[in-house]
């Protein structure tokens, strides 16, 4: 269980960094491609696979962010409900 929690934490930590790394790499490729389109930095087998990885990282990041927001909203709602219940009790 502890081990699984460690893996989960590592994945949650890695996902955004993966997006940052690949995003920065693709911006570099875009610039290189603009300077010399014939070399095809954006149009080759290696960057095709990297782009797939980029999409997967972003997809997972999006899901993670959405779930965190959901959790945060749920927590806030719960806190608000608890505060209101306490207020009613006091009254």
């Amino acid at each position: 269980m502890k081990y699984l929690r460690k893996i989960k934490r590592a994945v949650i930590w890695l996902l955004p960094h993966g997006s940052i790394v690949l995003g920065a790499a693709f911006i570099t490729f875009w610039i290189l491609d603009y300077l010399n389109p014939m070399i095809g930095f954006l149009d080759n087998a290696i960057t095709d696979w990297l782009f797939l990885a980029f999409c997967i990282f972003n997809l997972l990041n999006g899901i993670l962010a959405a779930s965190l927001v959901w959790k945060h909203m749920g927590k806030k709602n719960q806190e608000a409900e608890t505060a209101e219940a306490e207020k009613t009790e006091t009254e």
Binding site: H17, I20, V21, A25, F29, F41, I46, T47, L50
Partner: peptide
């Protein structure tokens, strides 16, 4: 340090692609 680490990783990624592609 984390930001530098990310930049280094990005540079490594670009370097590997340039190496194999170019």
């Amino acid at each position: 340090l984390i930001a530098l680490g990310d930049l280094l990783a990005a540079a490594l990624c670009v370097g590997i692609v340039v190496l194999f592609h170019y």
